[in-house]
Design a protein around this nucleic acid. Structure first.
Lengths: 245, 245
DNA sequence: TCAAAAGTGTTCAAGCTACACCCATGA
DNA sequence: TCATGGGTGTAGCTTGAACACTTTTGA
């Protein structure tokens, strides 16, 4: 047993900070997707206790020898089969009674994925389903509160930073992007101003291809300029003028 | 022993989620203050183990029957004697080896306080000192990383929302407020444009008083319009046009 | 040839930036 | 009366909002 493993043994004889409580640390994930029309959540129909049969977020416990960041990626991978998923930490939830079985602190985060790229068999194995935000069911514990906060934070962040692209396929059209923003903010936008605003960021590259799925005029397919995306990510872009109210 | 206490007992016989690890949950606080010239941090000269003699953030452990939010307030109160302190959660830090004694997850937050209002005896009892950001010492564990992130977040948030006021006394002048923003962003600002921008938010109320401490023309003392402050807090105010780079 | 969706241009108002001038105060 | 710091005004530019017309496509 290594020195490090000695230190983190939770049996009393190895404890150094003797008087404080040890507790479970859960990670709960809010996974957003976009099907071209509506914003969706990947939710679990629980086939395990507690609250079996009810809906909840996907979660898991942080393990003894696992970095927090790695655990987050593990949980997202087990649910979607995707690596390098975009996510942001939301908040830690720590009411004493939030989990009826045992004191558990949950660190909650939201993830944005391309709904067409995830592994459907894995989702099925976890009993996970895509549910439109407009039909969202009641969730267990404090998970409703988590989703409310996640949606608020998504709106806040997407108004200022180019995170919306994470919800789209690699190649997408400006009208598709507009539908995404309209879904996120549940509001109609002016086509002409939206297009000009997006193009003025210089974040998009014209692929030269067009959207062949269209029955009318085919829209230009763009992709993200990865270099500019990374360098300008933290600059404010003001995709929505004041979406925070 | 109540039902609830049964559930959260950490001895093995009561554990319901049997296979996952229990661990310590720390709360680490970055306390910002402003003395009229410089942005400062309230840091602890550790007179306890581990890393006795070195500098660190103020922290504490979440207790068994304590809500997370209450624990945060407790830690801030024990350090400053202040209640209702403005704070925001920053991030959870959870590397396996971040604390050498025992696996500890830290939920880190930053607080903004009026430097003149805190209890100096309490700070002394904790061995806490105000250190200018420009002279900040090396800190223990991952606390340097926490301070870096806190400063980044403060700049991000203060550019968009009226949180700077939390660092000032109840009554303050516009030149004082400008010095604060100049300290936060470490950049000079135009007096005339700054004043117009601040007044255009309509968040300030002219108290009718003037700053008697001035040797030259006495500046008008303003106070926050609490009603507008609360209702407009989440609206974007753009105090700094693009401070996030 | 027509309906539906996509691309582009113009005008007006508001806000931002970069400046200069005047006022109040105490030494 | 002078140096220092505080309050206000303006011209020019940029940005954003509102709105109309033209093009492409397949049925």
């Amino acid at each position: 047993m290594s020195q490090t493993q000695n230190y983190i043994d939770t049996t009393a004889m190895f404890r150094k900070y003797a008087h404080s409580a040890r507790m479970l640390l859960a990670l709960d994930s809010i996974v957003f997707g976009f099907d071209g029309e509506e914003l969706k959540l990947l939710l679990i129909k629980r086939n395990f206790e507690p609250e079996k049969g009810k809906w909840s977020l996907m979660g898991g416990f942080l393990e003894e020898n696992e970095d927090l960041e790695l655990a987050t990626n593990r949980i997202l991978y087990d649910l979607t089969g995707l690596k390098d998923v975009y996510f942001e930490e939301l908040k830690a939830f720590g009411k004493v009674d939030r989990d009826p079985l045992e004191r558990t602190i949950s660190i909650c985060f939201f993830a944005l994925i391309n709904i067409h790229a995830h592994d459907q068999d894995l989702a099925k194995a976890q009993n996970a389903f895509w549910i439109s935000l407009k039909d969202r069911p009641n969730l267990v514990f404090d998970h409703n509160e988590m989703v409310d906060l996640a949606l608020e934070r998504l709106r806040y962040r997407a108004a200022l930073h180019p995170i919306g692209f994470e919800l789209l396929p690699e190649k997408f059209t400006i009208p598709q992007l507009q539908k995404l923003y309209e879904a996120i903010y549940d509001t109609p936008l002016d086509r002409r101003n939206f297009s000009r605003k997006i193009l003025s960021t210089k974040l998009l590259i014209d692929t030269g291809e067009k959207n062949e799925n269209s029955a009318t005029k085919k829209a230009i397919l763009y992709k993200l300029d990865q270099t500019k995306y990374q360098s300008q990510f933290n600059a404010f872009h003001y995709f929505m003028s004041d979406a925070s109210r």
